[in-house]
Write a protein that binds this DNA or RNA. Sequence first.
DNA 1: CTGAAAGCGCTAACAG
DNA 2: CTGTTAGCGCTTTCAG
Lengths: 363, 363
Amino acid sequence: MSKDRISIKDVSALAGVSAATVSNVFSGRKPVNRDLQERVRKAASQLGYLPDRAASQLRSGRTNVVAVLVPDLTDTFFATIVTRFEALAQADGYDVIVASSRDTPAIEASRLEALLAFRPAGMIAVPCSNEVPEALAAEAQRMPVVLVDRVALPCTVADTVTIDNRDAGAVAARHLVEHGHRDIVLAASRMSMSPIEERVQSAADHILRETGRHATILELGTNVDEGTAIFARWLERHDVPDAVLASTNVTTLSVLSTFAAFRIAIPDRVSMIAFDDDAWMRARNTGLTAIRQPVEEIAEAAWDRLRLRMREGVSTPPVSIVMNAGLVVRSSVGQRIPETAALALRASPRPAPASAAADEPLH
Amino acid sequence: MSKDRISIKDVSALAGVSAATVSNVFSGRKPVNRDLQERVRKAASQLGYLPDRAASQLRSGRTNVVAVLVPDLTDTFFATIVTRFEALAQADGYDVIVASSRDTPAIEASRLEALLAFRPAGMIAVPCSNEVPEALAAEAQRMPVVLVDRVALPCTVADTVTIDNRDAGAVAARHLVEHGHRDIVLAASRMSMSPIEERVQSAADHILRETGRHATILELGTNVDEGTAIFARWLERHDVPDAVLASTNVTTLSVLSTFAAFRIAIPDRVSMIAFDDDAWMRARNTGLTAIRQPVEEIAEAAWDRLRLRMREGVSTPPVSIVMNAGLVVRSSVGQRIPETAALALRASPRPAPASAAADEPLH
DNA sequence: CTGAAAGCGCTAACAG
DNA sequence: CTGTTAGCGCTTTCAG
């Protein structure tokens, strides 16, 4: 352990070549004689040489680093996206640096600065609020940026990859209504985040249109424990609804925790549609019916887009990619007889013109 | 968007000072006149200047970057550790770069190289196998390294932070045995990983000592779906055991998924002890009794250690920190009458000398 | 194909 | 306290 760091000069000296040749061997940017290559590589591995990115980047102006910024790494949705990115980036010869904003705009700004100081070749960001951070918007004019998930469309700042949130909300609402549910709670995280607003509002609209009833919208925040507390407080003061539709995997956990604490059975007493499709949702006796976002595909689309931009520049106008979420039906949504149908049944000997679904319990 | 990048010179020119002064304003390493500070800051923000780490690091030899390497970012245990690190590091003025080895030694080696090429000030690593990667062991002699979780003790390479895995296994086994369980399956991920081996072997030893029965050890791997398939295949050919003890949060998910698929009720038909204490374990009607690792404390201990080393160097011998896991009792472990006690009960009118716990069903 | 020399943006050292 | 100068390790000329 004599010298502090092994540099390209140590290698070139040992191999008896110039530093430039060593550089060319490692970067592969210029052809090098086979024999020399071998000598250089041997010397390098003998010394444990690893090129210094700082120096390389400084001189060349190029870098193979892409940055990823997400609101929360402990949220499986984001963790999965990051993991997939990293694999894709690595396959294309890029290294990924990751930062988490812990859902706080101030932290987001600071993490963003930290990432930008690396002068990455590109960046994929899931903003923590609706506002694209100023620094990011500015940077997006020179550096490729792809915005994912938490974005209000249309977005003029950068390319985006999102799901069709209105459709997701409507599909879930329809499923609930078709199963006879009328008194429905929509568990939002924060309505100020536009994808959430879209999911929830579109579900509410559908419910109102189909049943004439107003859904109850509850904001449970982006943290499980906080959301559990809020929902518990609400439940203490209200009747158990027919069904709950979660708008986020975190709200899903909050709602389920509360029901567990209150020993409210799913789907016997209340139906539930979860958001996102995590492993634990399958690991239960009554599997959760859930809106599944195509996480991997989202990550892939974002990476494709970023790679394209890194190759072709940011001069052409931003593109918005919208993917579709699907409903995975398992067993957390039960069949209810809606009041109107039940009244009709009691009032007349003939079956009322209720939906086929609502008839089922009579068989 | 005329110039490509704003450099320190642009700022110094606009502010009418030297580059060194701008540097001192931002690094705070030398005092600068108030007025000048202000002028510099104004010029900088006006230009959108962000110091270039590559250049800074190259010249100064210092860096405020620490690297974190984990086997899997989608595993909540690791994700939580990373998140906590990042918060702590940030509070101390460090930036974190993260990489995931996806539980594959080859990827681990490549990610490790990528991280080391940043020349970080220190590194926290959760190796994916028992073997500390060669490159890391070598690096640990000059750069502070803290190894977490997946480490075989004693470790001569670097400081370590782990839990007392033998104790964790024994505590869980005792809980099961005390509740009258005899036919017990130990769900390992891979016995070749020494913490797992310790947890599982120590549980097996305890069970053998207390009941004279050999526990069944099953290796379910480090992936939920794979583990589910393996356990399902096993269940098709064997009786449902009295209880299952998981050694990992991933094996927990595999086991639960299988039980759900087979509609085997917990704890009526089989008891279960989970590993790690994730939010979803509380979000069920029968909450999971679980071994809880003190995740946050592990992260904090590792960070403290790393910070100390970054301050004081790596010359003093490695230190091993061992923390304690605890058993969180919820409702997934039921009461069984062990055969021996049951036989004794049937054979004699007097209560057999069974444990108090085993008597409970008779009340 | 290889080597010598210059310089990326920044900060250490020293002079003022 | 501020400016000047040199050079970190690499890659890029450009000459051989």
